[in-house]
Nucleic acid binder design. Structure first.
Length: 612
RNA sequence: CGGGGAGUGGCUCAGCCUGGUAGAGCACCUGGUUCGGGACCAGGGGGUCGGAGGUUCAAAUCCUCUCUCCCCGACCA
C-alpha cells in the first residue's frame, strides 16, 4: 500500500500524472478589482499567482511550474555559451562604494543593516559582485574570455510597481556578464548573447523584436533590447515596416521633411510683437497663422550634475529649445548633458535665468554657458533647429514674442544635439529607406549591452596581456526577465475566457477533462487516456474533479493549457475531442489515434516555435 | 514625490450622504436532485466594517491622524 501511494506522487514513476482533484489550483470566477492588464487578471484568476504586497507576489503551483519551464529553457541555452554561478541576494556595501553606485543608485536599492550596524543591500543587479570575482581571480589573458551567468532573484524598490508581474520589486532574472581582453572579444560575447537570446525567446514561443536601446547614463557603446509588442507594455518602440529598423523611443531617430520657411518681415531682423494671452504653442501658432513647426518651444530644466563617483553635485539651469510640434525626450537629454536627474524650473529660477515668465521664454538674449552644466545657463537646441530661418519664439517678456528669428544668427547655444522624441509617421532614419515610422507599446523581456570598462576600471580588475602588460578587461552585461516571459506570453495569447501558453512553457501540455466522473466508464477511459499520454512523456493534467462539465471547461479555458481532451459522450464509440485552446477548435479523434495525434500536434508547435 | 481612487466574510460589491452595533451574489460545509459550457432545492459555518484616537446615550456611517493597495504622472543601472 505504502509503495503504491508513494508511486502516485513520485515523478520518476512512468505512469505519473497530476490529478486536478488533488491539486491546489484556486481559480477565480472574477478578477480582483486591483487587476487591470490582461496578464495580471488572468494569472490571478488562473491561480498562478497571489499578491502579497505592492510588486510582491507568491507564485503558486501552476505559476511556478511555468516559470520552471522557462528557466529550464534559459539554462539550457545559456549553458551553450556561459557558466552558471549563483551569487548571494544579500550583499555588502563595499563593492557598491567602489563602483560609485552605493550613492548613485539612490532609493531604488533596498538597504539594511546587520546586527553590527554594517550596511548591506539586497541584490539589485550583480555587475559589482561579478567584477569583484573577476578582479580577485582573473590574472591572465589566457583565462579570457569568460562569460558567467546566474538565474537569481533581484530586488528593486520601484517607485511604482504595477501591472501584476510586469513591474515588481522582487523578480527572477537571468543575468550574465562577459569579460574580454579587447573590444573585438566583447563584440563576440555580445553577438553570442544576441544569438542565444533569439533562441530562448523563440523556444518560449514569443513573438519578439530586437531594438536599438539607450545605454543609459552608465555608459556603454551598444545596447539592444528584446521586446514583445503589447499594449500593457511600458516602452514605446519606433519601427519601420519597410526596412525593419526598430528602436526604443529613448533612442530612435527619424528624418524630418523640410519645413517651408516663412518670409521675413520688415528688415528681416528679430521684431518684437505684442501677443497678449498667447502662452501656449497653439495660441502662438494661431496668432501668427504659422505651423507650430515654425515656432521655437522652450523647456526649462534644472539638471543635477554628477560629481566624483557619480555622486550628486549641484543643480544647474538647462534651457532646451526645439520645434513647437516636437517633444523633449528626457532620456536623450540626460545622456547629452550627462546629468543624473532633471526637474522643471520653478518660477524664481525662470526669472533668474531668463528674466522672463513661463509661456514667453525664448533663446534670444540669453548668454549660453560655453560649458555643459557650467555655472551659467546651459542652452541645448535640438539639431532640427539648425539651418532654420525666420521663426517665432518667446521674447522673455510677458505677452510678447519675437519673429524673424534665425538660429545661429540671432542666438547661440552650448550644444546642439538630438534631444526630441520621434513621432509616428516621420521618415525612417535609414538613408536608403522611404518608410514611415510606426510607434507601438512593448514590454522588455531581455536586454544586452556592452558595458565597456566602467566596472572593471573603477573596481580595478586587471589581467596581463601576451606582452606581460597589465590591461583592463572589457565587459558586457546581459539580462532576461523570467517572469516577463510568462507575462508577455499571456499578453500575447488571451481572449475573454482566459489565455493559452506555448507548449514549451505551459504548466501542462494537455488537460484530460472527464465530463462526468459519476460515469465509471468515462472515468476509466479518462484514466487510461491520461496515463498513456503521461507514459509517452507528455505533461498531463487529469481533471478528475467531481464537477459538472461546464465548470471544468471554463477552468480549462482559463488556465493556459494549450490542449484539452474531452472524454465524454462519444467515448462509448471510441472517440474523444481534442480542443486546441489558441484557436478554440475541436476535432474528434479515435482513442487508438490519440497518442499519435497529440505527439504530432506538440511537434508541430515546437517546429513553429523553432522557426518563429 | 504630485494628482486621483479604494480598503466591509475567500472574491465581487451594497450599506455610509440622512449614526441605532452588518447584508447580497459567488465561493465554502451537510443532505438531496442533477450532470457537455461556471446547476437547483433545503439547511449551515464564517466578517465588528484597514488601524489608532475623538465626538455621541449609541459609530461601518461624523471628525482627526495613520497604514495599505490600485490608477495617472514623476521615476525606472
Amino acid at each position: 500500500m505504502l509503495f503504491i501511494r508513494l508511486c502516485e506522487w513520485e515523478s520518476s514513476c512512468p505512469l505519473f500524472m497530476h490529478r486536478w482533484s488533488k491539486l491546489f489550483i484556486p481559480t477565480l470566477r472574477e478578477a480582483p478589482a486591483d487587476a487591470e492588464v490582461a496578464s495580471h487578471k488572468f494569472l490571478l484568476r488562473a491561480g498562478y499567482i497571489r499578491q502579497l504586497g505592492a510588486g510582491i507576489y507568491n507564485y503558486l503551483f501552476l505559476g511556478q511550474r511555468s516559470l520552471n519551464k522557462i528557466i529550464a529553457i534559459v539554462r539550457e541555452e545559456m549553458d551553450t555559451i556561459a557558466q552558471e554561478f549563483y551569487l548571494p541576494g544579500i550583499l555588502p556595501k563595499e563593492p557598491w562604494v567602489e563602483s560609485g553606485r552605493w550613492s548613485a543608485i539612490g532609493e531604488n536599492m533596498f538597504r539594511l543593516k546587520d546586527r553590527k550596524g554594517a550596511d548591506l543591500c539586497l541584490g539589485f543587479t550583480h555587475e559589482e559582485i561579478m567584477t569583484s570575482m573577476a578582479r580577485n581571480e582573473l590574472r591572465s589573458y589566457k583565462q579570457l574570455p569568460q562569460i558567467w551567468y546566474q538565474i537569481q532573484t533581484k530586488f528593486r524598490d520601484e517607485p511604482r510597481p504595477k501591472s501584476g508581474l510586469l513591474r515588481v520589486r522582487q523578480f527572477i532574472m537571468k543575468d550574465s556578464y562577459s569579460f574580454d581582453l579587447d573590444a573585438a572579444g566583447l563584440d563576440k560575447s555580445f553577438d553570442r548573447h544576441d544569438a542565444v537570446y533569439r533562441r530562448i525567446f523563440t523556444r518560449c514561443g514569443l513573438n519578439f523584436v530586437s531594438v536599438e536601446a539607450d545605454s543609459g547614463a552608465m555608459g556603454g557603446s551598444q545596447s539592444q533590447e528584446f521586446m514583445v509588442y503589447t499594449d500593457a507594455g511600458e516602452d514605446l518602440i519606433a519601427s519601420c515596416p519597410q526596412c525593419g529598423y526598430a528602436a526604443n523611443l529613448e533612442k530612435a531617430t527619424s528624418r524630418l521633411d523640410p519645413v517651408k520657411e516663412m518670409e521675413p518681415s520688415g528688415d528681416g531682423m528679430p521684431e518684437l510683437v505684442s501677443t497678449p494671452g498667447c502662452a501656449a504653442i497653439a495660441d502662438v501658432a494661431a496668432f501668427f497663422s504659422i505651423s507650430p513647426a515654425s515656432d521655437i518651444k522652450c523647456v526649462a530644466y534644472m539638471a543635477l550634475k554628477r560629481g566624483e563617483h557619480g555622486k550628486p553635485h549641484a543643480w544647474r539651469g538647462v534651457a532646451v529649445f526645439l520645434r513647437g510640434d516636437h517633444q523633449v525626450n528626457e532620456t536623450k537629454l540626460l545622456g547629452v548633458i550627462g546629468a543624473a536627474e532633471l526637474r522643471t524650473m520653478q518660477a524664481e529660477e525662470l526669472s533668474h535665468y531668463f528674466n522672463g515668465p513661463a509661456g514667453y521664454l525664448g533663446p534670444v538674449g540669453l548668454r549660453p554657458d560655453t560649458q555643459t552644466l557650467g555655472d551659467g545657463l546651459t542652452v541645448i537646441v535640438d539639431q532640427s533647429l539648425e539651418g532654420r530661418r525666420n521663426m517665432v519664439c518667446g521674447a522673455n517678456q510677458l505677452d510678447y514674442h519675437l519673429r524673424n528669428v534665425t538660429p545661429g544668427r540671432d542666438f547661440g547655444w552650448t550644444l546642439s544635439a538630438d534631444i526630441r522624441s520621434v513621432n509616428e509617421g516621420e521618415k525612417c532614419p535609414k538613408p536608403a529607406c522611404n518608410g514611415q515610422l510606426l510607434v507601438g507599446k512593448a514590454v522588455e523581456v531581455g536586454h544586452i549591452f556592452k558595458l565597456g570598462y566602467k566596472y572593471s576600471e573603477s573596481m580595478g580588475a586587471r589581467v596581463l596581456d601576451p606582452n606581460g602588460k597589465e590591461v583592463t578587461p572589457i565587459m558586457g552585461s546581459y539580462g532576461i526577465g523570467i517572469e516577463r516571459i510568462l507575462t508577455a506570453a499571456v499578453e500575447q495569447g488571451n481572449d475573454a475566457n482566459g489565455f493559452w501558453l506555448p507548449v514549451s512553457i505551459a504548466p501542462f501540455t494537455v488537460v484530460v477533462t472527464v465530463t462526468n466522473m459519476a460515469d465509471p466508464s468515462l472515468r476509466n477511459t479518462g484514466e487510461t487516456v491520461a496515463s498513456e499520454l503521461a507514459a509517452a512523456g507528455l505533461d498531463v493534467l487529469l481533471d478528475d474533479r467531481q464537477e459538472r462539465a461546464g465548470v471544468k471547461f471554463k477552468d480549462a479555458d482559463l488556465i493556459g493549457i494549450p490542449y484539452r481532451i474531452n472524454v465524454g459522450k462519444k467515448a462509448g464509440d471510441g472517440q474523444v475531442e481534442l480542443v486546441t485552446r489558441a484557436t478554440s477548435t475541436s476535432e474528434d479523434v479515435a482513442l487508438a489515434d490519440l497518442l499519435a495525434t497529440m505527439k504530432e500536434r506538440v511537434e508541430e508547435q515546437s517546429l513553429l516555435e523553432a522557426s518563429a
